[in-house]
Design a protein around this nucleic acid. Structure first.
Length: 448
DNA sequence: CTGGGGATGGGGCCC
DNA sequence: TGGGCCCCATCCCCA
């Protein structure tokens, strides 16, 4: 006969003991703040502590001390509270750091919850759906569904603090499965094979390219952080050495460990010397601090990590006023706008020769603009249409905060893309710096 | 089919 | 910390 309340009471008792510092045999020092806990609880909850404690001194008379500098005490408090209660207090502010810490501590349950939290927070499904809708808008008629997608996303942005209770069956969920779920959530059209694989409109792989060129010679196909979690399970549970793919993966994981070890050394995760797991030394590796919770990429600055995370979340906060295309960065939007919609390049699109205001003019094709020299222009049989500067008008219609006007932009985009879908009206617009500058000024506020 | 160029996206890093 | 610039890889289009 099973008494279901026993587990709860047991955990509750352990939590009480922790709070009253009863039988605590492990001190965790996080940025100077000491947390007391029980070795056996930590051992059972974290792959990191499992490894740490299994290799620590067998002398149980002295408390084990573990020191961390990679996450804040507040973050560890959230994690420790979860360990002792099963309740994870996630907020939009702490989820990234909690996820990163959970990744470091190899706590797959928390990782899964964080992924779900981020997923729901960003409403990625809706966003990706919208992404594809916008991309396919040139082929399909625009539907009224577009604007609401952005409204829902903005709504989701202000997520209140939520507590996640992890059910047992989910706690035992294999990490990879959760990732595949997450990936399927990310895309309904493109199957993702690896966690770090991301989406773009072309479905191309967006694995950080630099990593392959410079990043410690890591393999392009190396699996991500979740394999770090799995690794513990594999090593503890024993992996099939006869599987060559596992061997190569293990080799990659060793490399991964070495990479992480740099962090430890450089940033003083001064674990007790006797309890530091033996790892490879890579003293010549660059110093990295902020680790992406989605992949193995590490960056030096938090801002860079924030920027990097967009490639995982699919967030594209910078929409083009002219065509509705969205970008992850303002500079990309600006570059796109200048080249596509402002004929920023002083090059004849046809003959590729340099074009000045005197030797050529701007041709407008839908929302796209480019320059043609007079010779190429004469060859082309364009109907000269009075310059109504529709593009400029459309560009200046919606201003203000880029986030607050997403819904409007969607509606606007529908019209614009419908216009683009029509046979292009070629508008020959003579280059006029004043007009161009004026148009620029009208648009720039949105680009700032 | 292929190579070149344009467009796009991501990383490093300076300001 | 964000903005911005530079560099480079990748993908797509087109000749």
């Amino acid at each position: 006969m099973e008494i279901s309340s026993h587990q709860f009471h047991l955990l509750e008792q352990l939590n009480e003991q922790r709070k009253q510092d009863l039988f605590c045999d492990c001190n965790i020092l996080v940025e100077g703040k000491v947390f007391k806990a029980h070795r056996n609880v930590l051992f059972a909850s974290s792959g990191y502590f499992k490894m740490l404690l299994s290799q620590s001194s067998k002398d149980t008379s002295q408390p084990t001390i573990a020191t961390f500098e990679v996450f804040s005490p507040e973050t560890f408090m959230v994690i420790l509270d979860f360990v002792y209660s099963g309740i994870l207090s996630l907020t939009g502010q702490n989820v990234i750091e909690v996820m990163s810490a959970a990744s470091y501590l190899q706590m797959t349950d928390i990782l899964n919850v964080c992924k779900t939290f981020i997923k729901s927070s960003l409403d990625i499904n809706e966003k990706e759906k919208d992404h594809y809708l916008s991309l396919s808008a040139k082929r399909m008629n625009n539907e009224s569904a577009h604007p609401s997608l952005y409204r829902s996303r903005r709504k989701a942005k202000s997520n209140p603090t939520r507590s996640h209770v992890i059910p047992d069956e989910k706690a035992s969920m294999v990490n990879e499965n959760s990732w595949s779920n997450y990936n399927s959530y990310l895309s309904s059209q493109i199957s993702l094979q690896r966690p770090e694989t991301q989406l773009s409109k072309r479905g191309r792989k967006l694995v950080p390219t630099r990593k392959r060129r410079k990043h410690l010679g890591l393999s392009q196909t190396r699996d991500c952080v979740q394999y770090k979690s799995d690794k513990t399970e594999q090593t503890s549970g024993g992996c099939n050495a006869s599987d060559s793919s596992h061997i190569s993966r293990a080799r990659e994981e060793i490399q991964f460990d070495a990479e992480n070890d740099v962090d430890h050394d450089d940033y003083g995760y001064n674990q007790e010397p006797e309890v530091i797991p033996k790892r490879l030394k890579h003293d010549d590796l660059p110093r990295m601090r902020f680790k992406c919770p989605f992949c193995t990429h590490t960056v030096k600055r938090r801002a860079d990590l924030k920027r990097h995370l967009r490639c995982h979340t699919g967030e594209r906060p910078y929409p083009c006023e002219a065509c509705g295309k969205r970008f992850t960065r303002l500079e990309h939007l600006r570059s796109h706008f200048q080249t596509i919609h402002q004929a920023g390049k002083l090059i004849c699109r046809k003959c590729k020769r340099h074009v000045t205001d005197l030797t050529g003019c701007v041709v407008q094709q839908g929302t796209r603009r480019y320059r043609l020299c007079h010779e190429c222009l004469a060859e082309a049989s364009f109907d000269s249409v009075p310059d109504d500067l529709d593009a400029e008008h459309s560009l200046t219609t919606y201003r203000g905060n880029k986030h607050s006007k997403w819904a409007l932009e969607e509606e606007q985009k529908s019209d614009e893309e419908t216009m683009e879908e029509e046979p292009y009206n070629l508008v020959i617009q003579h280059v006029d710096d004043d007009i161009s500058d004026e148009a620029d000024e009208k648009v720039k506020p949105n680009l700032r």
